[in-house]
């Protein structure tokens, strides 16, 4: 008994085995979880629906919604977002005209088509974008500190 415990603790206390042990646990949980409850059902009533319109001139970037108009956007707590549905005009009038008259010109990154996804990102879930950026900033700060310190030496 004590031999087994010693052996287990010897494996666990080595930090080189750490990633392997963790990966093993994650894989075990995924396999057991899928065996217990499979298939997972997709809920049709999604709060943030996503649809791809292949015929749009903005095709891969078309995020839905009416530019410069009001769009009906689903939200969890609409009372927190009085301007929901109005922030739809990420296309400038010129780029809107380009996207409507040409087939693919509007998909350049310059035109930055707006719509529902941006609404979700910047209006209903704006804090998420801030935190994502904060994570990046923290990572950059670490890199910057280590870089400048190495240069000073």
């Amino acid at each position: 008994m004590t031999g087994i415990i010693r052996r287990i603790s010897r494996i666990l206390q080595n930090h080189n085995n750490l990633v392997g042990v963790y990966a093993f646990v994650v894989i075990a949980i995924i396999i057991v979880g899928l065996l217990l409850q499979s298939p997972l059902t997709y809920d049709q009533d999604q709060l943030y629906p996503k649809s791809i319109d292949k015929n749009s001139s903005l095709d891969p970037y078309d995020r839905g919604g009416v530019p410069f108009g009001q769009t009906n956007v689903v939200s969890q707590y609409p009372e927190n977002e009085p301007y929901l549905g109005y922030v739809t005009a990420y296309l400038t009038p010129v780029s809107l005209w380009i996207s409507e008259t040409t087939r693919f010109m509007g998909t350049t990154i310059v035109s930055h088509p707006g719509g529902i996804i941006d609404e979700i990102l910047y209006n209903t879930r704006g804090l998420d974008t801030i935190i994502e950026t904060a994570i990046l900033f923290v990572a950059f700060t670490m890199a910057m500190f280590l870089f400048t310190r190495r240069r000073e030496e």
Partner: peptide, 12 residues
């Protein structure tokens, strides 16, 4: 117990 063994026993 030794430190890591204490953890292992509790983990078991």
């Amino acid at each position: 117990l030794s430190p890591y063994d204490a953890v292992t026993i509790q983990a078991l």
